[in-house]
Amino acid sequence: MVEVIGWILVIALFVVGMLGTIYPVLPGALAIYFAFFVYGWFFSFAEFGPWFWIIQTVIVIALFVADYLVSAYGTKKFGGTRLSVILSTIGLIIGPFVIPAFGLILGPLIGALAGELISGKNFQTALKVAWGTMLGLLSSAIVKIILQLGMIIIWIIWIVVH
């Protein structure tokens, strides 16, 4: 029974982690990283050596750096202001609550658009920045999905091989 609980927790953390790639309120990579500890506590840490932890930690750090840089790059490349970055992030967080079906896309788009309009840019320029922000956020989500799936695949290989 304890093993079943362990597997449920590990799988639940993996699911939460993957959902975190598109919904920033969820812990994402940290949930996946924590799943490794849950596995160790319920089963064994013996399979994990220092290289496992080094590789996974580097991936987590890369995820945090890439998440910020790729999202901000999309906004900055299209001429966006810091206010647009901030409001698009707020839109990403609250968008799904305000507009349930489309909030993940419309929230950041509206936030960046509002940020540019507040900064005094014309509508055409603001819309261009908003699209750049969306491209940055989508690119960031793709990078997170790939790296977090990589974390899970490395974990699976590591426990099967060791």
Rank of each mutant, 00 (worst) to 15 (best):
59 I>N: 00
69 L>D: 12
120 G>P: 06
77 K>I: 13
108 P>C: 06
156 I>A: 10
24 P>D: 08
139 S>F: 08
111 G>M: 14
30 L>F: 02
99 I>H: 07
86 I>C: 08
82 R>N: 12
148 Q>R: 06
30 L>N: 00
104 L>W: 05
125 T>L: 04
80 G>C: 09
121 K>C: 12
149 L>H: 03
73 Y>N: 11
23 Y>D: 01
20 G>F: 08
58 V>C: 02
96 P>D: 06
141 A>C: 00
137 L>V: 11
6 G>S: 14
152 I>Q: 12
34 F>Y: 08
4 V>R: 07
77 K>C: 05
41 W>N: 08
152 I>G: 06
147 L>Q: 04
142 I>R: 01
16 V>N: 10
139 S>N: 09
112 A>N: 15
49 G>W: 03
8 I>V: 12
65 V>P: 05
130 A>M: 05
76 K>L: 10
85 V>M: 11
43 F>R: 05
66 A>H: 03
102 F>S: 11
62 A>Q: 06
138 L>N: 01
156 I>Q: 05
114 A>L: 14
63 L>S: 08
131 W>V: 11
50 P>R: 12
94 I>G: 14
22 I>H: 03
100 P>V: 05
130 A>N: 01
33 Y>L: 06
145 I>Q: 12
60 V>Q: 03
4 V>W: 13
103 G>P: 03
39 Y>Q: 12
60 V>R: 02
48 F>K: 14
125 T>R: 09
58 V>A: 07
9 L>P: 15
35 A>T: 12
129 V>Y: 02
83 L>G: 02
49 G>M: 10
49 G>L: 07
105 I>H: 04
155 W>E: 02
39 Y>G: 14
71 S>I: 04
68 Y>A: 09
146 I>V: 15
78 F>Q: 15
3 E>S: 06
85 V>E: 15
62 A>F: 04
136 G>R: 01
69 L>S: 10
91 G>Q: 13
110 I>H: 05
121 K>P: 14
149 L>N: 07
35 A>H: 09
62 A>R: 11
113 L>Q: 07
70 V>P: 01
17 G>W: 00
76 K>R: 14
40 G>H: 09
144 K>V: 08
116 E>F: 04
104 L>C: 07
108 P>V: 13
52 F>G: 04
32 I>D: 01
99 I>G: 03
99 I>F: 08
89 T>H: 06
135 L>W: 07
122 N>M: 06
8 I>Y: 05
100 P>L: 04
137 L>I: 11
33 Y>H: 06
68 Y>T: 14
80 G>E: 13
141 A>E: 00
15 V>M: 11
160 V>G: 07
87 L>I: 14
119 S>T: 15
83 L>H: 11
91 G>E: 13
3 E>L: 13
148 Q>W: 00
146 I>A: 07
123 F>A: 06
90 I>A: 10
161 V>E: 05
68 Y>I: 13
138 L>D: 00
72 A>T: 13
37 F>H: 08
100 P>R: 00
137 L>W: 02
31 A>D: 03
112 A>W: 00
41 W>R: 09
45 F>A: 09
95 G>W: 04
58 V>Q: 01
158 W>C: 01
99 I>P: 05
46 A>E: 08
147 L>A: 12
104 L>Y: 05
148 Q>G: 02
49 G>I: 07
77 K>L: 10
18 M>T: 02
90 I>V: 11
79 G>M: 03
40 G>T: 11
70 V>S: 03
116 E>K: 03
133 T>G: 09
157 I>L: 08
66 A>Q: 08
64 F>E: 03
135 L>K: 06
72 A>M: 08
